[in-house]
Design a protein around this nucleic acid. Sequence first.
DNA 1: CCGTATCCAGAATGATACTG
DNA 2: CAGTATCATTCTGGATACGG
Lengths: 118, 118
Amino acid sequence: MADHRLDDKQRELLDQLFDKWSLVVLDILCDGPRRFSAIQRAAGTITPKSLTQTLRRLERNGIVSRHVVATSPIAVEYGLTSLGRTLEKPMQGMLYWILRHLPEVSVQRCGFDDRARR
Amino acid sequence: MADHRLDDKQRELLDQLFDKWSLVVLDILCDGPRRFSAIQRAAGTITPKSLTQTLRRLERNGIVSRHVVATSPIAVEYGLTSLGRTLEKPMQGMLYWILRHLPEVSVQRCGFDDRARR
DNA sequence: CCGTATCCAGAATGATACTG
DNA sequence: CAGTATCATTCTGGATACGG
């Protein structure tokens, strides 16, 4: 494995998957389809503008689907596509790493900052 | 699984691991320790400033180690720490996803853009 | 060789207000 | 409800030049 090296196209996609909100939104959608406002609430502090942007990009990449339900008032459901679901496992791997190793990272940071102060 | 939701600290770490260059650099270091200029060459177009920034941050997070060899001229070797190596598998999972699914993503993009044009 | 310093353009993001 | 529009600000990263 690893005879690769990322080219520009691949780095672009990487950037889009790992921008400020994409992973957070994807993580939410892993639990099932959600409506715009539900995602916004779950994500914490994201503004509607940023959320729209994030969802559009994920939709464009074929990872998220957008379904309009013509009720009144209107409802829009976002969910993972089949392509999006293939991303679920590797993504959870990364998120799990964060959960598991953040404490150790915090320790390392303190050590680094102490050394830097001297 | 997945009773979590990322808090601010966790999102911060996520942002640092997935900034423009971190994954590229980590990917290079997976193959073994490398010197500053070797990383720069392998990464493609990164400027020394950005590379320094990326390496410092990874070092601060305890993921990358920096070792100065007092030859003349000076040499500096960067490598993964033991903590960094635990990140290798999940990271390769993501990179592999990119390699594997980029073609499909490209197709999806074209479809999306076509639909948008109308 | 391994960086740091400075400057700067453009992208990303937040705040806020408004619409179908 | 599900966004869009606009403005202000911050943040990122490239270009370039220089220093230990």
